[in-house]
Design a protein around this nucleic acid. Structure first.
Length: 433
DNA sequence: TTTTGAGTTGTTCGA
DNA sequence: GTCGAACAACTCAAA
């Protein structure tokens, strides 16, 4: 017999229980497939497409070049391959996103053999952490405590003996540098040496001392269970703080699984009445990094140039769009999803909602980031600004955060008055209460 | 059953 | 310059 392992966002061989099940079901003979879904591919920006292609290349190399990549609707591609090899079963790691759940049901309906779900991209699958009433949590801290108490299994090894079954498929790009399971593990092991400093330094975009694990996690090049096992061996405040961030990722996935509409609609219904501006010139200035606020522009340019933005800066640019420009968060969320290499629907949408004040355990409406003071606080020497905004490289130290005081002809003037914009945001929030 | 205290990331204002 | 208060409303768990 042969089993099919349908890879999606679990592009690794180690710590992959679904793959172990496929190997067992196929008695060692497994056909590994990745279906390039045009619906998802066309919606992704270049950074995600590039990374996915490179990661598939890396996975295929680890499989002796036998990963079968086919382009097309998974509901056609996967059953066709299963027929081709007379598969006993098709194996997946469960997807809890709104699109993925529907797609998997359609594939299941088209298959002649069973679709077996084993594991998920999370240490604790969405829907497993429940309060005493048997419902999902709306507040992070109690969720976190229950998540810790729930616990997770230990990582599992890569399968020892697999005969990867051949079939025809698309050519993969030749370069897989920096992507894939091996790169993810090497990067993670190196980062672990610094995780103790995470608590103190993670908010500093100039130091760039975050783990950068969002991309490997997005594609499942590593499983969070592997990371949690490593963190458990390191008792430090930094390791504890890092574990909390992994739990936030799972909290977001849990919320989205239970509220599929939360991808683009506010969780709190009163926000349907919130007054927003249509995205126009100001929105375009935000996208392009030409708002005249150095920290906002540095972040948006880092995003455009690299497909990544430091976490602290993501909050600042998001707050600026929603609370200074009064544009609906979904436009920002959509821009992020197109631009980010690590773009994950659950983390992206729920964190935008958190900033906008309409999500679960959301930031209070009166918490409005001041882009200048955030810059002075978290980029004290202005280095992050000078790295991404060349027009301001002539300004020393903190002066880079207030170019209007020190002169910078090539740089735009602020497109709004922050103090007035803040007051307006507070008025609009008051109106829906 | 009811009450109480606590809860990711901030800013401004006035003493 | 430093410091505390105010800026809501609601969920959840413990008492």
């Amino acid at each position: 017999m042969t089993a099919v392992m349908w890879f999606r966002r679990d592009l690794r061989l180690a710590d992959n229980p679904a793959l172990l099940d496929a190997v067992a079901a196929g008695d060692g003979r497994v056909l590994g497939v990745f279906a390039v879904d045009p619906l998802l591919w066309d919606r992704s920006g270049d950074p995600r497409r590039d990374h996915l292609a490179a990661s598939l290349r890396s996975l295929s190399e680890a499989m002796g070049g036998r990963l079968v990549v086919r382009r097309g609707d998974p509901a056609t591609v996967v059953p066709a391959l299963a027929d081709e090899v007379g598969a006993a079963s098709v194996h997946i790691s469960a997807d809890y996103g709104p699109y993925g759940q529907q797609r998997d049901q359609e594939v299941e309906a088209s298959l002649k053999c069973p679709l077996r779900r084993t594991g998920s991209p999370y240490a604790v699958a969405p829907g497993r952490v429940l309060n005493q009433q048997g419902r999902s949590y709306q507040v992070f801290t109690p969720y976190f405590k229950a998540w810790l108490a729930h616990g997770w299994r230990q990582p599992v090894e890569a399968p020892a003996d697999v005969t990867w079954v051949k079939s025809s498929g698309e050519e993969l790009p030749s370069s897989g540098d920096g992507a894939g399971e091996r790169a993810a593990l090497e990067h993670w092991k190196a980062y672990l040496e610094d995780v103790a400093a995470y608590d103190d330094e993670r908010d500093r975009p100039d130091l760039d001392s975050t783990s950068r694990m969002s991309v490997p996690l997005k594609y499942g090049e590593i499983h969070p269970r592997t990371m949690l096992a490593d963190l458990a061996r390191r008792r430090s405040v930094g390791a504890e703080a890092y574990r909390r961030e992994l739990a936030w990722r799972e909290f977001c996935a849990d919320l989205l699984a239970r509220n599929p509409q939360a991808a683009w609609k506010p969780l709190r219904p009163e926000f349907d009445k919130m007054q927003y501006e249509e995205p126009g010139e100001l929105f375009e200035a935000w996208c392009a990094g030409r708002t005249g606020f150095p920290l906002v522009d540095a972040g948006m340019r880092q995003l455009a140039e690299t497909g990544f933005v430091h976490n602290r800066v993501r909050m600042v640019v998001a707050s600026f769009l929603v609370k200074d420009l009064h544009v609906h968060w979904r436009f920002g969320a959509r821009w992020f999803m197109r631009s980010l290499r690590d773009g994950d629907l659950a983390s992206n949408s729920l964190n935008w909602q958190w900033v906008a004040g309409c999500g679960a355990d959301a930031a209070p409406y009166f918490r409005i980031f001041n882009p200048v003071s955030q810059g002075q606080k978290f980029d004290p020497d202005g280095e992050y600004i000078r790295r991404w905004v060349p027009e301001l490289r002539h300004l020393d130290g903190k002066a880079a955060h207030e170019p209007w005081r020190y002169g910078a002809d090539a740089y735009p003037a602020p497109i709004v008055d922050h103090s007035e914009a803040r007051a307006e945001a507070l008025r609009r929030y008051a109106a829906i209460r």
